[in-house]
Design a protein around this nucleic acid. Structure first.
Lengths: 348, 348
DNA sequence: TTGTAAGCGTTATCAA
DNA sequence: TTGATAACGCTTACAA
C-alpha cells in the first residue's frame, strides 16, 4: 500500500531523489519549471506521501511534543490540553498525551519513552516526585515546562495559578460580605502538592491579615469521598462555619453532596466559593460563585514556552508564570451580615 | 547532550553494533554472560537511550496510534480517550491526540499528518464528512476505528452507542411512570450526524410503538444556546410537555437553564432524562436520572479493535459495535400520573 | 558467540 | 539546475 517512496517518484519523474527532496522542501529556486511540473505529476500519480520518520532521523527533530498529565479526566487538564493542542497545531506540531495517573513510576517511564521517541519538548503536569528525572532534563537544556504543579528542587519553567492570590480572593469575597466564620475545605495537606499547600497558606495569610484565626475548627481536610461525612461532623459543633472555601472542583463536589444530604440552605445558612470553574455553576441553585483558572491562557503559555526554549539555545533562566484567577460572581449576597442572600438571575 | 548512540556503546563495550542491538532486543541466547555485562555497563556509563525513530524507520512500525476527535472538551471524548490511552499503555503504544474542532478540512489534514508520521493505526471521532479520505484507508487495510459517529459510505469498524436503544430507554422510563406528553430536545437534525439522527428515529419509533404521536409539538430542535428561548416558546402553548428527553449533555444544559430561568418545578411539573452522564447529576436537586454511555468500555474496545486489525492481515469484514447505555435512575417519580415526584436521597 | 554490511526513506554536501 | 553519495541510528541476514 503505502510503499511508494521518494525513489519511486524520482524514477517516474526522471530526476534524482535529491531533486525530489528539493521540491518537497520548496526550494524551487534553482529548479526548472519543467522538472517541477514533472515531479508534481509523479507525486500525484503515485499518491506519494513523504515519510516524516525518515526525515526526523536525519533532521533530529520530530515536530512532536509530549504531554504527561496526572489526571486526564480532570477538567483543568482537558482544557489546558486543548489550548496546548491548538498552539501546537499552529506550528505544525503534534502532541503525544500520556496519563501518569499520579503514579511517579509511570511518569518516569513515560518521560523515557517520550525521549526515546525523540519528542522536541515536554509539558508535564507533574506528580511532584521525580526530581532526578527532571533535573537531568534541565541540565541537558531539554525544553520542559511544568503546568499546575511544580517539582520541588527542579528549576524549570512553570505555569501556575496564583494560588495565594486565589485564596486571598476567596477570603476577600466572604469578608466583603461580612462572613467571618470561614473554613477551608481541602484534600489532605501533603507537602509535595505545591498548589494545595499554596492555597492553604494563602488562606491562612488572608485570614490572619483580617484578624481571623485559622485552626482545627476551620480547616477541613479529607479525601473527597470522606468530605461529606467530615463536614457533617464539623457542622454538629457549635460555632459552625457559615462560609466554605473549596480549594478545587473535586472538594466542591464533596461540599455540595454534604449540602444536599443535610438540606442546609444556601446561601442563607452557608455561602460557598471554590477554585476551578465548573460547568454547572450557573444552572445550580443558587448559582455558584467560582474562582476560575484561566486554563486556556495557561495552556497557550505552556506551549509557547516550550517553543521558545526550543528556538533559543542561550537558555535564559527558568521562569515561573503566575496566572491570576478570575472571580466569577454568580450569586449576590446581601452585604453586611452574611446571613441572607438571593439568587441573581441576571447573569447570562 | 543526547548524542550517545549505539556505536558509542559498542565501542566502549568492545563489541559491534549488532551485538548491542541483540542485547537491547533481549536476544541473549547466544551471548556470553561476559559481553552482556560489558554492554550493560557501557549503557549505564554513557546513559544511553535508544532512538526509537531509527528503529521505526527500519521496522516500519512506530508503536503510536493517532486519535482525531471533533471536540476535545467534551466529556465523552475525555473519557473515551482515557480508556484508549490506558489500553495503549498496556501494549507499549502511545497516542497522538488531534482536535479537529468538527472541521472536515482540519480532520483531513490531521489524517495526512498522522499517516506521514507513520502511526500504526487511527481512531477517529469523525466529523462525518471525509468519505474519500477514509475510504482510501479502508481499501489499503489501514487499521481504522470510528467512535461515537460513523462516516456514511465508509465501511470501517465503528464503536457506537446503541442510540435507538437509548431513546427507547428514555421513552420507556417516562412511559412507565405514566408520562405521555414527552418531547425530545436536540440540536438541529442534520443527516450526516448519525447518532443524532439515530436518537431521533429511535425516539420516534419508541413513541409510535406506544401510540404517541411525534410531530412539531414534541420535537424541540435548536442550537444549544437557543434552547432556553425555544423551550420557553413551547411552554407557552397549551398541552405543553411534561417530560423532556435531552439527547446529550449539552442540550441538557439548555434544558436546565430553561428550568432555572422559568422556575418550573421538577419533577412536579416536568421530568427530565438525558443521554450522557453528567458529573453533577447527583448533587443537583432533584437528582438527575441519566442514560450513561459506557465510555470506558467503548474506548477500550476501540483500542482493542485497532490492535486486532494491526495484528491480522486477513482483514475480516468491518463490524459495528453497539454499546448498551445504562439507566442511572436517581430520582423516584411516583408511578402513575407523572405529576408528582420526590427526591431520592438514598443514592450514594 | 560475535562481526560485517546492507538497508530503512529522508536530507545535505558537493560536484558536475 | 541537477545528481551522486554519504550520512542519520538502528535491525538483520549472513559470515566468520
Amino acid at each position: 500500500m503505502k510503499k511508494v517512496t521518494m525513489a519511486d517518484v524520482a524514477k517516474l519523474a526522471n530526476v534524482s531523489k535529491s531533486t525530489v527532496s528539493q521540491y518537497l522542501n520548496k526550494r524551487y529556486e534553482y529548479m526548472s519549471e519543467e522538472t517541477r511540473k514533472r515531479i508534481a505529476q509523479a507525486i500525484e500519480e503515485l499518491g506519494y506521501q513523504p515519510n516524516v520518520i525518515a526525515r526526523s532521523l536525519k533532521q533530529k527533530t520530530t515536530a512532536t511534543i509530549g504531554v504527561i498529565v496526572f489526571n486526564m479526566l480532570h477538567m483543568l487538564t482537558t482544557q489546558v490540553l486543548h489550548a496546548i493542542e491548538e498552539e501546537c497545531q499552529k506550528r505544525g506540531f503534534q502532541v503525544i498525551v500520556c496519563n501518569s495517573g499520579d503514579d511517579p513510576e509511570k511518569e518516569k517511564k513515560y518521560v523515557d519513552m517520550l525521549l526515546a521517541k525523540q519528542v522536541d519538548g515536554l509539558i508535564v503536569f507533574p506528580t511532584g516526585k521525580n526530581e532526578e528525572v527532571y533535573r537531568r532534563l534541565v541540565e541537558e537544556r531539554f525544553p520542559l515546562v511544568f503546568v499546575d504543579r511544580m517539582v520541588p528542587g527542579v528549576e524549570a519553567d512553570s505555569v501556575l495559578l496564583d494560588n495565594a492570590g486565589a485564596a486571598e480572593m476567596a477570603v476577600q469575597y466572604f469578608a466583603s460580605y461580612g462572613y467571618e466564620r470561614i473554613a477551608i475545605v481541602t484534600p489532605p495537606l501533603v507537602p509535595y502538592n505545591v498548589p494545595r499547600m499554596e492555597r492553604f497558606e494563602g488562606f491562612r495569610a488572608a485570614m490572619e491579615k483580617r484578624g481571623f484565626e485559622v485552626g482545627d475548627q476551620n480547616v477541613i481536610a479529607a479525601e473527597p469521598a470522606a468530605l461529606p461525612g467530615e463536614l457533617k461532623k464539623r457542622f454538629m459543633e457549635s460555632e459552625r462555619p457559615n462560609a466554605l472555601f473549596a480549594i478545587n472542583d473535586l472538594t466542591l463536589m464533596g461540599v455540595l453532596r454534604f449540602v444536599k444530604e443535610t438540606g442546609i440552605r444556601m446561601p442563607d445558612e452557608l455561602a460557598i466559593i471554590n477554585i476551578d470553574d465548573v460547568p454547572f455553576a450557573d444552572i445550580y441553585t443558587p448559582a455558584l460563585t467560582t474562582i476560575a483558572q484561566p486554563t486556556f491562557a495557561m495552556g497557550k503559555k505552556a506551549a509557547e514556552r516550550v517553543f521558545e526554549q526550543m528556538d533559543s539555545n542561550h537558555a535564559d533562566s527558568p521562569r515561573v508564570f503566575r496566572f491570576s484567577p478570575a472571580l466569577v460572581e454568580r450569586t449576590w449576597i446581601k452585604r453586611g451580615n452574611g446571613k441572607e442572600g438571593r439568587r441573581n438571575d441576571e447573569d447570562s
